[in-house]
Amino acid sequence: MNILILGYGKMGKIISEIAQERGHTIVGKIDESNINLLDELDTNKIDVAIEFSQPDAAVKNLSWAIKNQIPVVCGTTGWLGKKPEIERLTLSNGSAFFYASNYSIGVNMFFKVSRFLAKMMNDQPDYAVKMEEIHHTEKKDAPSGTAITLAEDIIDRVNRVKRWDLDTDTDGNEHSLPITAKRIDPAPGTHIVTYHSEIDDIEIKHTAHSRKGFALGAVLVAEWIKDKKGVLSMDDFLSF
């Protein structure tokens, strides 16, 4: 399979290595230093694009791929205010767009466990929920996309929680889910969800040991999406 890498930072490099180990060809590596080469590429020779760039570049990269009907797998966070626009563009162009805040198979199992726990905790008003996430210091957005996904899943299932807030506590606002975001090297990603009461705590935690799990997941999705159309997610890929 011929893969175009959009965004060639640390994640892009690991994705490129794993893709080639799995027998794929990297037909281009585009980042801010050579973005002018994008319109010179032969789109007929690109099967899938994998987009792990920066928030300010993601929309342009995704729009280019979608308009050229190249299935695109995106892991960039921090730009999601424009996600509905990209989804509409995908459908109107008959292309394929796949977004996940995290491509690790383990993290997506963690999402599933968190949703199940949140559904049960909806009927337990004595428990307040909070979250902590830890990433490396080069991560530009806070909270992480993974933390936001966890928070939105909880808000959808725990009626007393109306919103999330960054770096606050629940004192004085029982309707808020506080997220503490820490940036500590070389942490690739830790997420902890805690339900606290006067009697006890219930805590679930995912700790990544390296970025390889995220990169491998993105390549597996790229292999899966090649001949598909529409707006897709990890729930489709993992058949949740």
Rank of each mutant, 00 (worst) to 15 (best):
H209I: 12
M11Q: 15
G28F: 03
L4C: 06
I199M: 07
E51D: 13
P178G: 05
I199L: 08
P178K: 06
G23T: 11
G9K: 09
I26V: 11
L62P: 00
I15S: 05
L117H: 02
I70M: 07
S92H: 10
S63N: 13
L6D: 04
K228N: 08
L220S: 11
D47N: 15
D235G: 10
M1W: 05
D167L: 13
V158P: 06
K226P: 04
T190G: 05
I134D: 05
V107F: 00
D156Q: 05
D156M: 04
Y8H: 10
K182W: 06
V129Q: 01
S101N: 12
E87I: 15
I225Q: 04
D201N: 14
R183K: 15
G217F: 04
D31E: 12
G172S: 07
I70A: 06
E40K: 15
M11P: 10
S233K: 08
G12K: 06
S239G: 05
M1K: 09
F98M: 12
I225V: 15
G230D: 13
V193L: 07
G230R: 12
F214D: 13
A218F: 02
S210F: 06
K67T: 14
V72K: 10
L238R: 03
T76H: 00
Q54W: 11
V161N: 01
D123L: 11
I66K: 03
K112D: 02
L38V: 13
T25K: 12
L4H: 05
I154L: 07
I192K: 05
V161L: 07
A215V: 08
A187C: 15
E85R: 06
I35C: 11
I192E: 03
